[in-house]
């Protein structure tokens, strides 16, 4: 289309158009070749700094055991082997740690979504008495020092015999994630036009019906993203797990990986292998969802 259009223009008009478009992006395209070179050099340097430690993990994970202690900086080491990865599955409890993390994350996500979705809808739809109190609560809750509630939760869990169980830590994670999940979902529910629900009411649907039949299906993407956040938060969590899970057989991967990370003996290669296996899927998930994370963090924390 646009090609045909430009063919029909006279030469004069074409020149005019070009100079205009050039002017319009003058500031953007106005970098001289030298400036461009400079910008690229800076960005290449920054990118190298960003990925080098991750590449190093790959290097170390591929090193044979007798080559672990070396000052070699090559990316693919001499005599690269997958022995460290194999050892992880045959000699270490790596699979058990992953399994524990999966069980805990799954329980947390299901419970957390169940608790926060309906609450978020109530906050988005009604200005009930107590609404303001809820807002203030969510704001102050963000200002609790990390781990402030760890001690009371730990003591309560000890009394209820819930330390060293999946149940205890799942409940703690799930309830702790309610405020943030609720904020995210509330923002989404508010963005769905009211007319949709009103139309349903005209057709004789009750509020509950319009929630389950219209809003929930519409909100499925938002709910999955919220679930993904809850998942990533507890998948990567260290502090609470360190306190609540003291039995080796219940260790999640952040706790387990610390066993491997004793300094520069044979387990360093295994540590690196484990990190690669855990980090790559998490990084992929993160990159895929990063735009939602940003808008969620800024909007979720910001919207009155």
């Amino acid at each position: 289309m646009s090609k045909n259009l430009s063919k029909n223009l006279t030469l004069d008009e074409q020149i005019q158009k070009r100079t205009m478009s050039k002017k319009k992006t003058y500031w953007k395209a106005g970098d001289t070749p030298l400036q461009r070179l400079f910008i690229n050099i800076i960005l290449i340097f920054a990118s190298l700094l960003a990925i080098y430690p991750i590449l190093r993990l790959l290097t170390v994970s591929l090193r044979p055991v007798d080559m672990l202690l070396t000052t070699d900086l090559r990316i693919i080491p001499e005599g690269a082997t997958l022995n460290n990865f194999i050892a992880l599955f045959t000699e270490r409890d790596f699979l058990l740690w992953l399994w524990n993390s999966v069980v805990i994350a799954f329980g947390t996500v299901v419970l957390s979504l169940f608790l926060s979705t309906s609450a978020a809808y109530a906050f988005a739809r009604w200005r009930f008495p107590g609404y303001r109190l809820g807002q203030i609560f969510v704001m102050t809750q963000q200002m609790l020092p990390a781990g402030m509630l760890l001690l009371p939760i730990y003591i309560i869990a000890t009394r209820l015999r819930l330390t060293n169980t999946y149940t205890g830590i799942i409940i703690a994670y799930a309830c702790g994630s309610i405020p943030f999940s609720m904020l995210l979902l509330k923002g989404y529910f508010e963005s769905i036009p009211k007319e949709l629900e009103e139309a349903a009411h005209v057709d004789g649907a009750t509020t509950l019906q319009s929630f389950t039949k219209i809003l929930l299906p519409l909100a499925t993407p938002a709910i999955s993203i919220t679930g993904l956040f809850a998942f990533m938060n507890c998948w990567n969590e260290f502090m609470m797990a360190r306190v609540m899970l003291q039995k080796n057989s219940l260790y999640t991967w952040p706790l387990g990986i610390r066993i491997l990370q004793s300094q520069f003996n044979t387990t360093w290669g295994q540590y690196a292998a484990a990190s690669i296996l855990v980090a790559v899927p998490v990084m992929a998930l993160f990159l895929w969802s990063s735009k939602y994370i940003v808008s969620g963090l800024t909007l979720g924390g910001v919207k009155d």
Partner: peptide
């Protein structure tokens, strides 16, 4: 550039910290 530069944020913090700890080792 953008996806490379965003990577440090994407790596789980536990792995970042432990990895850097190793990379600050005196000799290796």
């Amino acid at each position: 550039y953008k996806s490379l530069l965003i990577l440090p944020w994407a790596v789980p913090e536990v792995i970042t910290s432990l990895t850097w700890r190793n990379e600050f080792h005196y000799q290796y």
